[in-house]
Design a protein around this nucleic acid. Structure first.
Lengths: 209, 209
DNA sequence: TAGATTGTTAATCGATTAACAATC
DNA sequence: TAGATTGTTAATCGATTAACAATC
């Protein structure tokens, strides 16, 4: 959890700072960032000092300076290429979105049986092409949006072809391994969790009254 | 984090136990569950003992007994109804999935301009219908799958109509409030994070060689 | 019995926060 | 200077783990 949370925070700092900047601001205080991320100002300062991001004891932090440092830390590694395996509705939804601002670009979709040759200017290939494509383009990260029944073998394939990171949208929980990090986005679990918390909150407010 | 993580673990226990059961097993050991969830066996026992879920010092835990207890804890509250606001590709993808096994059901989709009257037997309504629908059906949880530009006002509406939990798929980070829990699923952030971790792992292996 | 697994205590570990001196 | 904010230390807090006695 630790390292992952910290890095997610750095990415969030970056996004918030870019927003502030686009609003015309030059400097921020630790408590501005704390408010935006819903964390304490102390934690912001701690994070920054951990990475030698320095501010001014009166004037807070220079947005540009912090952004520069964050880009170096997060690897301002240009536009990264990713692929999507599984071009049903979910895959198409992801293909339709423009992620370029977020630092990556979906360059191809794969499906056992693509319903169309391209979508949003991104080519859709049959699954057989995945291996040569990944090898040729040195793809490091991919998205799985196939049905649960195909998820395991899809992941297997992707790992075999050398993919190092997978975002898995299938309901099947996949395990990370040494050679490949897998993040599971389990929509059902999230909803179930929301219901639980909502019910909790209700119980609590009933107790009070 | 604390409570939320614990509850997510309980849900994962439940899912894994259901799988084990469907495989014909009767009993499990703490280390089976630990392996499945990628946590330590000690944590499993701790969680169980915290909720007075008892096992047998030699024979592990009875799957049925644990499941019974988990259902009571998690609120085996029948099939819950949820709605989706935003029926573009992502919304359609979610509408197409059958979540009944996961304990809830999407009963309606809403869009400023629905492209079709129904999908997967679920009616799609224009946004004006959202308010009466939510009130009449006592909807507690909803999904936001609208573009970033519409996300904030969509959430505002939903909260006003009395929705208590939102799963937000738009790239705009929304804040939870007292009256309504919001979970953000930020795909861009997840991918960015994967790239970071992949690069980290690479660096580390380069250092070793 | 011998062996294995639970249940629980105490130890560890790490993340977060409080608080305040340094300083702009 | 007076006031405000950083940078950092020490304290807190809570989650996780190690370890082992209890016991099936």
């Amino acid at each position: 959890m630790e390292q992952k949370d910290l890095m997610l925070r750095l990415m969030k700092y970056k996004r918030v700072l870019l927003q502030f900047k686009s609003l015309g601001l030059d400097r921020v205080y630790s408590n501005n960032l704390g408010d935006a991320l819903e964390i304490s100002a102390a934690l912001v300062r701690k994070d920054f000092s951990h990475f030698k991001i320095e501010g001014n004891r009166r004037g807070g932090y220079s947005i540009n300076k912090v952004l520069g440092r964050l880009n170096r830390l997060l690897g301002d590694s240009g536009l990264q290429e990713i692929v999507i395996v599984g071009c049903g509705n979910l895959g198409k939804a992801l293909l339709n979105h423009d992620y370029i601002r977020e630092g990556f670009r979906i360059t191809a979709g794969f499906d056992i049986n693509p319903s169309q040759p391209e979508l949003n200017n991104i080519p859709l290939y049959p699954l057989e092409i995945l291996k040569p494509y990944v090898l040729e383009h040195h793809i490091q990260v991919g998205i799985i949006s196939v049905p649960a029944s195909a998820a395991m073998q899809t992941a297997e394939m992707m790992v075999n072809y050398g993919i190092k990171g997978i975002l898995n949208f299938s309901p099947l929980q996949l395990k990370s391994r040494e050679e490949c990090r897998i993040h599971n986005v389990n929509i059902g679990l999230e909803i179930e969790n929301l219901f639980f918390m909502v019910n909790q909150a209700e119980k609590k407010s009933n107790e009070l009254s």
